[in-house]
Write a protein that binds this DNA or RNA. Sequence first.
DNA 1: CGGTATCCGCGGTGATACTG
DNA 2: CAGTATCACCGCGGATACCG
Lengths: 123, 123
Amino acid sequence: MGCEIKRCGDKEYYCTVELTLQIIGGKWKPIILWYLHTNGTQRFGELRRTMPNITQKMLTQQLRELEADGLVHREVYPQVPPKVEYSLTELGTSVVPVMRTMCEWGQSYEKAVAQAADGRDAA
Amino acid sequence: MGCEIKRCGDKEYYCTVELTLQIIGGKWKPIILWYLHTNGTQRFGELRRTMPNITQKMLTQQLRELEADGLVHREVYPQVPPKVEYSLTELGTSVVPVMRTMCEWGQSYEKAVAQAADGRDAA
DNA sequence: CGGTATCCGCGGTGATACTG
DNA sequence: CAGTATCACCGCGGATACCG
């Protein structure tokens, strides 16, 4: 039990945890999703300025993957100079609570580690 | 805002979502944690048989990382042949709800994708 | 402005063999 | 039984340059 490989589109996984991980995991996707959620619809350049450390290539790539997975909507305005806006879809909005849960656990983990460090310092 | 890098031990992150991802993310950790939770304390060989596709090296490595992060307890019985048991710590048990949330979202995502596929087939 | 195209290093992952 | 050790691959992510 639990050893069979399942498929969803092009993604393979044993457990749906992994499926979720493939969609919102990676170095940049959580941050992108987070900013799209907190700041709302944004242009490519705005996202870029918000995340100074991501390269243009990676931002484009990750946004396209999120679009392909149905989490992000990409609106192209046919004008010069180009204008492209990104926003969360309904599906994208539905991941926010999941991310919030992960956030909260991460925070409690931070505290647990800090307390363990204090314990060692006191000893 | 949100651009500062935070640290927790050897891990760097902007948001605690990423911290969580670094701890329970990757190809094998969710499965390992899941089996440890559902099946309880297990020996190395039992875990291996449960996950036929993981290599011995990866299983060892991932278990050690989980141990270093405080999610897994490693009990070595000094005997020949060796016996080593792995179990979830309290901290490890605390991630289970997070994984459950991710599981549930993954399942709803599966359904959304399946329905979208049905829609295209009908058209 | 919002992208592609190309090249490349590094680390995550795996196959295989050996060991206390 | 439960590991190390070693070698090799490959894909993620980054740097840089060019394009409509």
